[in-house]
Design a protein around this nucleic acid. Structure first.
Lengths: 124, 124
DNA sequence: CAGTATCCCCAATGATACTG
DNA sequence: CAGTATCATTGGGGATACTG
C-alpha cells in the first residue's frame, strides 16, 4: 500500500494524514489550480480573474477564492473605496504550489499530441 | 489575461487550446491524481488500487481508470485467466505526470502546519 | 476478480436577485 | 465592483445487483 503523504513520526500521525488528504482534496481540483495559475506572480482583481479563468462562474470563483484564502494560499486586499476594489495575490505557500501547477500545465502542452492520438485509438 | 497553456504557433491554435483545457480538466481532479500516485512505479491490480486509494468507490475507480487509459496515461493488461486478473501500470506520459503529483504531495506535507494555522485564524 | 448496468438521491453548480 | 443569499436543476457519485 503506497502512502501518498510522507509524514513525520508523530504521535497523532493519523490526524496529520487525514488533514493531508483534506488539503489535497481542496487543492487538487480544476478551479483552484486554474485560479492559482491565473493569479500567477501578479495582483489580480475579482473581475480580472473571472475573465481570465475560462468558463468559471461567479459563484465558483468566490467559493474557490475563499477556500484558497482559508488555506492561506491566497491573500486578499480590500481597498476601502467605493466602488470596492479587491486585490488577490499568492502567498508564499501559494507561490510554491503554483510551481507544481506550472509543471502540470507544461506537461499538458508537452503531451498534447500523444494524448490526442491515444484518445483516437481508444475511441476506436 | 494570462494563458495557462503555452502553445506552438499553430494554424488551429484555438482547437489545441480547448484540447489542453479538456485534458487539464480530466487530469486535475483528486481521484485521477491519487490513482496515478497509487500506481506509482509498480504494477497494481484493481482490488489493490481500491484498497490503496482511500475512500474511492468501485465506480469512481473504474471510471477514472478508463479516463486515464483513454488519455494514454495508464496501460491495462488483462490476463486471460479465470478468475480474471488485470494489471495497471503507468505509461511514459503517466510517469511524467506522476512527477508533478509527487511534487504536489510533497507540497502538502511541507505546508501542513502552516495551512492548519491559516485555517484556524481564518475560521476565527 | 474485474467490470457493467441500473436505480436513486444528495450535493455541487448555475442563474438570479439583492446589498454595501 | 465585489460579494452574499436563495432557489432550481442536474448530474456526479454511491449502493446494489448481475455477468464473464
Amino acid at each position: 500500500m503506497s502512502k501518498q503523504f510522507k509524514l513525520p513520526e508523530d504521535a497523532d500521525l493519523a490526524r496529520a494524514d487525514s488533514l493531508a488528504r483534506e488539503i489535497f482534496s481542496d487543492v487538487a481540483n480544476k478551479w483552484a489550480l486554474l485560479i492559482i495559475e491565473a493569479i500567477g506572480d501578479g495582483t489580480r482583481r475579482f473581475t480580472e480573474l473571472r475573465a481570465s479563468v475560462d468558463g468559471i462562474s461567479h459563484k465558483m470563483l468566490t467559493q474557490n477564492l475563499r477556500l484558497l484564502e482559508r488555506n492561506g494560499l491566497v491573500e486578499r486586499f480590500v481597498h476601502p473605496t467605493v466602488p470596492p476594489r479587491v486585490d488577490y495575490t499568492l502567498t508564499e505557500p501559494g507561490r510554491e504550489l503554483r510551481k507544481t501547477v506550472d509543471a502540470m500545465c507544461a506537461w499538458t502542452t508537452r503531451y498534447l499530441r500523444e494524448i490526442e492520438t491515444a484518445r483516437r485509438s481508444f475511441d476506436a
